[in-house]
Design a binder for these strands. Structure first.
Lengths: 212, 212
DNA sequence: TGTAAATGGTACGGTACCGTACCATTTACA
DNA sequence: TGTAAATGGTACGGTACCGTACCATTTACA
């Protein structure tokens, strides 16, 4: 109604952005519980009131962080499926998917969401739907197309997509999330490559031989 | 050296057990950060000193909890591979594996370990090795046998095992860990079943046709 | 039965943390 | 240039939490 009620932005957007960047570092490295508003404030400098002006409380700050990092990290899940060759498409999709999950932001986000899912159910749902869920759906659509063309023979494209992506994750992602071992690029390539092989052979139409 | 230095057990072992059970409920439902020693003490009753007599601090209590729950929950990962029929063996293995991961203890343990892995690296490593890692190794051994018999044709049995188990997890486990959806037994069966189908077709020796 | 260890019950020291309160100062816009 | 909003800097109220301190009481074992 009244435009005069709008707050003066000052360089408000920049300030907010700076706070968010710093807070993200703290929250993603420490986790929600161990991260403290005081710690964030100390790294930002200035007044604590400024921090609370932009984010009313710790929960709201965490939600803003997760939302921002999600859209940044998960954007890369856009399916690189322009490729029509099944093997190449799957390989690119798998490599890209695993790359996102194994990136520093991807791992930190995964840890944060698993940790806080029960206390931030809406956030958890959004994360799933925009992350792993979306990737599965994209791939399922791709499988449906390929199935229509008779290139693959899968009973349920949706489940098949989850299986392929699950196989790509393998134990590599789990081990990385637990900090047990950091996978090399070479291991990633090998993992994806073998997953593609098995999947293609496992879903090849009975009649035709797919070129290797 | 001196046996007189041994503490009198009183009904010490029972007391310790009771404390551990109660503490487990608190820690696994609240998570390490939100669980408090005061809260545990309140549920136990008695003196706070008794609690600290059995577990010197919060970290030690958490470690004891994780160790206990791990051996209880992960024991079920013992491979049910007495079965020699490939399809049946894989199905049983997959269903059992997913069942452990989706059990209340399995999910709570998974959340706790992902949450605290960076602060309890030794615990995280042990969990991985006795849990998912062990399951993969068992299955890899099985694949090696089957490969020797010419029943399956896999490039790398270890990676193949990770792929199969990863496919079995699919998005089901992730969604459950995030609290997004609780999978039905029927969905579990379907998921495992289709994973077995794809895997068997994908690893069948080129020459022989495996009976369906 | 006597004794050392463990327990019950309670209090509390020290610290960390969230969010608010002030007030002087600076900024953005009319 | 005047004014309202935002900021800097600091203090602090209220609470939660970890671990310790006491001391009377109970238990287990010699």
């Amino acid at each position: 109604m009244n435009t005069a009620l709008e707050p003066h932005p000052r360089k408000g957007s920049e300030r907010r952005e700076a706070i968010l960047v710093t807070a993200t570092e703290v929250f993603l490295s420490e986790g929600y519980g161990r991260a403290s508003m005081d710690q964030v404030h100390a790294k930002i400098g200035g007044s604590k009131r400024t921090l609370y002006n932009h984010f009313p409380n710790k929960e709201a700050l965490f939600e803003a962080i997760v939302t921002a990092v999600s859209s940044r990290a998960l954007a890369a899940l856009e399916p690189p499926l322009g490729e029509d060759n099944l093997r190449k498409a799957l390989f690119k999709m798998g490599e890209n998917y695993l790359g996102v999950l194994l990136s520093p932001d991807g791992l930190a986000l995964y840890r944060a969401m698993i940790s806080e899912a029960l206390h931030f159910p809406d956030l958890a749902r959004t994360f799933f739907e925009r992350g792993p869920g979306r990737a599965s759906h994209y791939l399922a659509d791709f499988f449906r197309e390929q199935k229509a063309k008779g290139v693959v023979d899968v009973a349920d494209p949706q489940i098949a997509a989850q299986h392929f992506l699950g196989a790509v994750r393998g134990d590599v992602h789990l081990a990385a999330a637990l900090g047990v071992r950091k996978p090399s690029k070479q291991l990633v390539k090998m993992t994806v490559s073998q997953a593609v092989d098995t999947f293609i052979r496992g879903t090849a139409p009975a009649s035709s031989e797919v070129e290797t």
